[in-house]
Design a protein around this nucleic acid. Structure first.
Lengths: 201, 201
DNA sequence: CCAAAATGTGAGCAATAGCTCATGTTCGAC
DNA sequence: GTCGAACATGAGCTATTGCTCACATTTTGG
């Protein structure tokens, strides 16, 4: 089965277990090289080497190096979306401040887990042509948060959802990248900013 | 005069007006290619071409492509520092909320002016070895803000300064990059978040 | 003026990248 | 078993990149 012709989508969908493992190994190898040696070190030969497969196999499933990055970014976005969905589901019926506190911690948790990878991938994303799938996932994430805000009568929930995500990520990401390890302290500093934004101090 | 041996510092300091113009043309060409065609399009030959000089001249003043990026980043950091210094100077003796409002607008103004360039440079910076000069300038920026916060009895002013800058940049940057053009509206949404962080709503 | 320093030139080298393809191997349906 | 499809291999082609160097031109101090 061949996939769409978009330059960022996978080339062929693996059908046997063996090829699924190959694809997984390629993605994991690319991510590890990216984390440990930087974007420039992620060459197709290096990825194939590290994955223990040949370049030919790599190009059976990814039409280009960029497609590998795009897939990793899609995985990251999907996980972030799912994390936030879970947090928002857990929080229905609770107070707005409780909901926001939970959101803050979900985002922090997401960034702590694989901080280096997320960081590098986000910088890469800016240099890649925009990927519709990634945009969709981010849109879904915002929409879910907006729904929660609507239920609490927050005005302009769509805009507020975007602002709040930017606020939380904007504060959490550099702090964690800068070596901050007291996640509770960080969360307790972000909380009042979010509530301040919402005018609910 | 030859400069330090650091891989990111310029190689030779221009002494005549003509070479100053050359250096300026190289930096401007690199920035324009970066903005319009992305990081991968910034090759030394392309930069030299666009600058109207030869590759040889380029390598007289920059030991590597990375050194060009590093210099552009330094310029950006210096301008941000100066913008914020001016804002903080203007605001001594005024109320904390007035000071923060001014800060918010200074950051927004800084990002509006050359949003594309700043964006691309920041993503590049993450992939370069850390540059001491840039770190120093960011440290100076934070310190100046911390001083202002100290005068308003804000506890932990150093940490708060970092948090507030991250908050403002984190909210402003994606919004502006996403095409937001109503800067006043944006500023008025960031203001309460900052005050919320400070516990001064 | 003139020599020395500063500046500028661009053909081309060495290295390396992304990627293809001819060929071989394994799997699964029948 | 058998045969076609799926999967895997890796030597090596093509293109490009960062960068050097031998040489030309301009500027400046005296």
């Amino acid at each position: 089965m061949t996939n769409s012709t978009s330059p960022l989508s996978p080339r062929k969908t693996p059908r046997q277990a063996r090829s699924k493992a190959t694809v997984h190994a390629i993605l994991e190898a690319a991510a590890r090289i990216l984390e440990t040696q930087g974007a420039d070190a992620v060459t197709t030969n290096a990825v194939a080497d590290r994955a223990g497969v040949s370049v030919g196999s790599l190009y059976q499933y990814f039409p280009s190096k960029e497609a590998i990055f795009a897939e990793l970014i899609r995985q990251m976005r999907a996980q972030m979306r799912d994390d936030i969905f879970r947090a928002m589901d857990f929080v229905v019926g609770k107070s707005l401040s409780f909901a926001m506190a939970r959101l803050v911690r979900a985002v922090i948790h997401h960034h702590v887990h694989r901080a280096h990878r997320a960081d590098a991938l986000e910088h890469l994303e800016a240099q890649l042509p925009p990927d519709p799938d990634s945009l969709t996932m981010m849109s879904q994430t915002r929409a879910r948060l907006a729904l929660c805000l609507t239920q609490h009568k927050v005005p302009q929930p769509e805009q507020a959802a975007g602002d709040i995500l930017n606020l939380i990520i904007g504060m959490a990401h550099p702090a964690l990248h800068g070596g901050e390890t007291d996640f509770d302290s960080l969360a307790r500093r972000i909380d009042p900013a979010v509530l301040g934004y919402l005018g609910r101090m």
